[in-house]
Structure formats: C-alpha cells, structure tokens
C-alpha cells in the first residue's frame, strides 16, 4: 500500500478500530445483509440483538471474512480488509485472522485434542511460538477461564459451559485485538450460561474490544457500551443500552422487545 493509500484508508476508518461501510451479503437469492454501517472504537463492547435470521451471525462472519461480503467495505485498524482482487484477499484474510478472534455458538472445539492442545495448537502453527511458550500461555488462559483443573481433559469429557470457556481461551491465545462472540450461550443449559457470561464480563472489564451477538438482554444492559438492534439485514437502531432496550424509538424495536418481555 502506498503512503497515499494508507492515509486514505486511515481517514476512511475515522480512527475507529473497526468500521463497516454499507456491507452487503447474499446467499444466492437471499440477501442477508442489506447495507450495514457500524463503527467500533477501541475498548467498546457492542451487543447485537435482534430476531433470528436478522443477519447478526452473518455480520460477525463477514467481519472475520468467513463469509466475505459482496459489497461495501470493512476497515480494521485503518486498513481495508475487503479488497476484491484475489491476491489481496489472501492478505486481508491473514490480517484479520491475526487480529480478530471469534467464538461460535457450537464451540467447535477440536475433539481429538485436549483442552491444553486446543488452546496451544494454533499458537505454535500460526504464530510460530515455541511449544513451551504456547503451553504456558494455554495453561494460564485456561486457569483464567476457571479450567485450571481440566487442562488435559478432552472436549467430550467437558460440559457445554466448560467447552465454551475453552473455546474462548483458544481465541484469546492468539492475542486478538477484537473478539467476536456469536450467540455463545445459546447452546448451553440455563445453569451453565452464567459461567460463560462471567468470562465475557471480565474481558469487557479488562478493556477488550468486542462484538457480542446475544439474546441475553440482562447481560447486554449490564455490559454493553452500545446496543445494536438488527432486523432484516439492516441496523434498525443503536445507542446506549438504556436507550435501545428500555426506551426504543423505532416501532420495530418496540415490537421486538415487547415480545421478548411478554415471554
């Protein structure tokens, strides 16, 4: 990238850690994202809420390029990551994956690896850390998410909540600048939700920049710096939690939270 180009990109991102500009994503006929604009400052915690099929998960998957958007631009730390040219795309992907971690609803732990190896593997293979450093880091992260006694367990011997905490540790091991959480408690039994949300709370308190797609309104109210309400592939409303959750301006938002509260 030329100096000029770098300057333009930096200007385009307004100094935001992450900026989405008119992002569109289609799956065949179905347009899942229909022009999303979003900005994230460093240390912000944005909770994305909305009905199923509103494009929340797709939004996260676009940001880390698991599903590259067809239209629009995404800037991460001032660099565009949505180049269309094949050659640049590989660099984009590499750039994003080293800075953005994602945790999935279904955990997706590697079932043939112990908790420690799940957290350690990519450190050695992707970041080139030594075996010892990777293990040390994996161990300390697993302690941090409260799994110090499960280091050598395999995923099928862990509860859903424990598996999800391993998955969080696995993503954190790559020293991400931004973390994406895709309905990380939706596959969990109710009594296991808290242990996972506690880890997220802690991360937020430590100043991690994160986007949390969630149905846990209580969590959003408590932790989010900003709540984003999505429906039909666009952002309907965004603002401080008290505003969006308790006093929404848009009809659609009112309707949604009305339904949620009635339950």
């Amino acid at each position: 990238m030329t100096l000029d180009g770098a300057a333009t990109a930096a200007a385009a991102s307004n100094g935001a850690t992450l900026r989405l500009d008119n992002v569109h994503k289609r799956f065949g006929e179905l347009e899942v994202l229909r022009g999303v604009d979003l900005e994230l400052q460093r240390g912000e915690v944005v909770c994305v809420v909305g009905p199923s099929g509103s494009g929340k998960s797709t939004l996260l998957r676009c940001i880390n390029l698991l599903e590259p958007p067809e239209e629009g631009h995404i800037y991460l730390e001032g660099r565009e990551i949505t180049h269309q040219a094949r050659r640049e795309r590989a660099h984009d992907i590499d750039f994003v994956r080293r800075r953005v971690g994602i945790v999935f609803q279904q955990f997706n732990l590697f079932p043939h690896k112990s908790a420690l190896a799940n957290v350690g593997l990519a450190q050695t293979k992707v970041l080139g850390r030594s075996y010892e450093d990777a293990l040390e880091k994996a161990e300390s992260l697993l302690y941090r998410v409260g799994l110090g006694d499960k280091l050598n367990e395999f995923p099928d011997r862990l509860s859903g909540g424990q598996q999800q905490r391993v998955a969080i540790a696995r993503a954190l091991a790559m020293d991400p600048h931004v973390m994406l959480f895709d309905e990380v408690t939706s596959a969990l039994d109710p009594e296991l939700v808290k242990e996972v949300l506690d880890v997220l709370r802690e991360l937020a308190a430590e100043g991690m920049t994160m986007i949390v797609v969630t149905h846990e309104m209580g969590f959003a109210r408590e932790v989010a710096s900003r709540v984003v309400f999505m429906d039909g592939g666009v952002i309907i409303e965004e603002g401080p939690p008290a505003e969006v959750l308790d006093n929404p301006r848009q009809e659609r938002t009112k309707q949604f939270f009305g339904l949620v509260l009635e339950r």
């Binding site: 698991l66 590499d94 994956r97 279904q106 997706n108 732990l109 590697f110």
Partner: peptide, 10 residues
C-alpha cells in the same frame, strides 16, 4: 465448524 474454527485461528 471444525474447518471454520481452524481457519478463524489463522
């Protein structure tokens, strides 16, 4: 999901 998890880790 296994491929995605692996790819998302870089």
């Amino acid at each position: 999901g296994q491929t995605e998890a692996a790819r998302s880790l870089g």
